[in-house]
Nucleic acid binder design. Structure first.
Lengths: 191, 191
DNA sequence: CCGATATGCAAGTACATGCTTGCAGCAGGC
DNA sequence: GCCTGCTGCAAGCATGTACTTGCATATCGG
């Protein structure tokens, strides 16, 4: 069992760096410290291997949760958003590579249940809770609002090291700014 | 001169579909309706060709402007944001591929002056104008605010066809929602 | 100790890749 | 008419690719 996982982890690493075409079976085998034939004996083909590696990586990515009974929206959301951004940033190479390969291999990215989408769903429900608790007065569509904050975090995680002229302030300050704007936008009073 | 541009356009198309490794000189030549050797006679190497093709594409992408004297922030911003989203969506395959290749070929994506960053800069200046005109009362960092809206638009353009469970409402409604949230966030009164 | 299973190693297959070379045609300018 | 510059065509080269086969070895349960 251990060897299988080592191969999967190696495949994910090489794939994140070089994409589907660049992730050659030789490189993956070398990265895993394993003979090339072993890959084929375990997974049959390169496609299956990489597909499974991405799936495992996606499943292993678990995100923090937002409180069921909101008390301090600003603090709670900031902490959550920082955690989400951190996770996305850690996996940014893999995520970017997947996006780049989407045109050629859409089957590698199932259209539902991505960590990003799950995070947005959690956020959406939190916004509804805020509203029910009377903490948010606005009438914005919570789903669109969630997409907006989530999109800002996603773009930040993906683009901060690429477009250095766009993201000049520190990540923490940026997240604080996003959350502040978001809360004011949905009608939450914030200092 | 015409042939050169035809080759560049073909290279950009093939690259957007398959990435650097997948964009073989044979495919580009076929797409351009040109013999393979012609590519090398004109550009020397595949790297130079693709690099130039991406550069040309990036330069050709020009974005709308925001009014110098803001009058109707909601209408102005919505129109602008829709145009930006449309542009990004048109080029999403190319942009995603570039992001995917960033790990291997960072030199293809100069860290400054990307269309996205330029749009964010324009947006930032617009926010400052709003504030000077007394239309915005908030004290949020305009640069962070601009990154947020721009990030939301960027993520929408990149992710709408990938994460279908995240983006359920129509693009126009989403943009309207982003802008509304943004304006309320920076302290602009909105209906 | 035996047999089954898992792995490594060496070699090979059929194909694709970036790039080069040599030669033929075909246009326009002098 | 002839020269020059551009293009196409055919072939080739060295390398890399996914994947296969055959055989030797190790490990472990019975």
């Amino acid at each position: 069992m251990e060897l299988r996982d080592r191969i999967l982890a190696a495949a994910a690493r090489v794939y994140a760096e070089t994409g589907f075409r660049g992730a050659t079976t030789r490189r993956i085998a070398a990265e895993a410290g394993v003979n090339e034939v072993t890959l084929f004996r375990h997974f049959g083909s390169k496609s299956s291997l990489i597909s499974e590696a991405i799936g495992a990586e996606r499943g292993a990515l678990l995100l923090g949760s937002l409180p069921g009974e909101p008390a301090d929206p600003s603090a709670e959301l900031t902490a959550w958003a920082e955690a989400v951004l951190e996770l996305l940033r850690e996996k940014r190479a893999l995520i970017r590579t997947c996006m780049g390969d989407f045109e050629e291999h859409p089957e590698m990215m199932p259209p539902c249940g991505s960590p990003t989408a799950r995070a947005a769903e959690a956020l959406c429900e939190y916004v509804e809770r805020l509203r029910r608790a009377g903490l948010a007065t606005g009438n914005a569509d919570p789903r669109v609002a969630a997409s907006m904050l989530m999109g800002a975090l996603f773009a930040d995680a993906m683009g901060r090291d690429i477009m250095t002229d766009l993201y000049r302030s520190a990540p923490d300050e940026a997240v604080a700014g996003y959350v502040r704007l978001f809360l004011r936008g949905i009608g939450v009073e914030v200092a």
